[in-house]
Simulated scan of single mutants.
Amino acid sequence: MGKRANGEGTVYQRKDGRWTAAITVGQGKRKYLYFATQKEAVKAIREVNNLKDQGVMLASKDQAVAFFLETWLQDTAQPRLRPKTYIRYQRYIYQQIIPTLGNIKLQQLMPQHLQKLYNGELKKGYAPQTVKHVHRVLHRALHDALRWGLVARNVCDAVDPPYVPRKEMQVLNAGQAKHFLHTTQGDPLEALYVLALTTGMRQGELLGLKWEDLSFETKRLQVRRTVSRIGKMGFVVSEPKTVKGRRNISFTDLALEALQHHKIRQHELRLKAGADWKEQGWVFCNQRGNPLEAGNVLRRSFKPLLNKAGLTGYPLPRSTA
């Protein structure tokens, strides 16, 4: 059986059960890709034709790694990624991968090239975890190149990324947590720290809370978004990465009391700001109603409170229970 798919290309099933995507890649040449399912084959044709429409030279043996990665990042990766992740990919590709591998022909890329890249980055002082992230970005890009028939294999599969020693996360024990909360009493962000310790919510989730997400009657809240500041893009609001991340959480009487006091304090700030207040519904905001920047919370609030409590070197507190 055969099937046409959004432009040039044919999908048919082989006698061995596999599905073939036959694609015209230039000058009448045909490229054959093989998949386990019809859906995968059709998807491959659509992706390849989309790249062809954008001018990507799929059949060129002279296509350099730099050209491929730049095109892949802009046209394929960016629509899939969160803004913060895209910026990180961009940094890895332009600052670390392209300077070393950019001039190599994509089809001539060898495991030795990758090993040289990783060793060189480690010698420059980059952490093993950072170099491992570089490996993951390359693997993801070359995975797509393999699916599109641009390379015969993903050379990342033949190279081991640097070993990353596991670090034991420091968390507050029960006594330290109680002492820390005592220190935060009366602080403008007391409710944030109470929620962090009693619910285990992440920093971006806490800063992304809106009053509409909370119910004082049922003592429950919904995690619906995260908020973070990303360079020139400013504050970016995102949905949780997974369905599991979008969840309902019960909160304690202690958190309820802290949130009630926090709402009263925020109302007083709103009255004081007058016309300068920008009502956006954030539970935790600055003196004008705008979202809080995570870096400022850590530097100007959390670390001073840690020092005041005689505790240092801990991340934003989360539940140890």
Rank of each mutant, 00 (worst) to 15 (best):
Q90H: 03
A59M: 10
F67C: 00
A36T: 11
D62Q: 11
E40D: 13
R46H: 10
Q90C: 06
P83Y: 03
E40A: 14
Q27P: 05
Q63I: 14
Q96Y: 13
T20G: 00
L114F: 06
K105C: 03
L58W: 02
Y86C: 03
P111R: 02
Q54R: 04
Q115I: 00
D62I: 03
V65Y: 06
Q115T: 11
D53T: 09
F68S: 01
A59W: 11
Y89S: 01
L114Y: 07
E8G: 13
F35G: 03
G26E: 05
Q112D: 13
N103H: 06
V25L: 04
R88A: 06
L106Y: 03
T85R: 11
R88K: 13
A36P: 06
N49L: 00
I45N: 13
G120Q: 00
Q13L: 02
Q38N: 13
L69N: 12
T37Q: 00
G7V: 08
G26N: 01
V65C: 05
T76L: 04
T37L: 08
N119W: 09
F67G: 02
R82C: 00
D53N: 03
Q74C: 07
V42A: 09
V42L: 13
R14S: 02
A77C: 08
P99H: 15
E121F: 15
T24W: 12
E47Y: 08
L81M: 14
Q112S: 12
E121M: 15
Y118G: 02
Y34L: 00
D16I: 11
I23M: 14
L114E: 15
K123N: 07
I97R: 05
L69P: 14
R82K: 09
P99R: 09
L33C: 11
K61E: 12
T37H: 07
Q38A: 14
Q27D: 07
I45R: 10
L69A: 07
D75A: 10
Y118F: 15
A21G: 12
I104F: 01
K105P: 02
F68N: 02
P99S: 12
I97F: 04
A64I: 12
P79S: 12
S60V: 09
I104W: 03
Q96I: 05
M110I: 13
Q27K: 15
E40S: 12
D62S: 07
S60C: 09
I104A: 01
G17Y: 02
P83S: 04
L106I: 11
K84W: 10
V42N: 02
E40M: 14
E40G: 08
L51D: 06
T37E: 03
N119L: 01
Q115P: 02
A59N: 04
T20V: 00
P79V: 03
E70P: 11
R30H: 10
K61V: 09
G26H: 05
N119E: 07
T20L: 00
K15M: 09
R91W: 12
G7D: 01
Y92G: 06
D62F: 05
T10K: 04
K43Q: 13
Q63A: 06
M57F: 14
R80T: 12
R46Y: 13
P111H: 01
K39W: 12
A21R: 11
Y89G: 05
K29R: 09
Q112G: 08
A21S: 11
I97D: 11
Q108I: 04
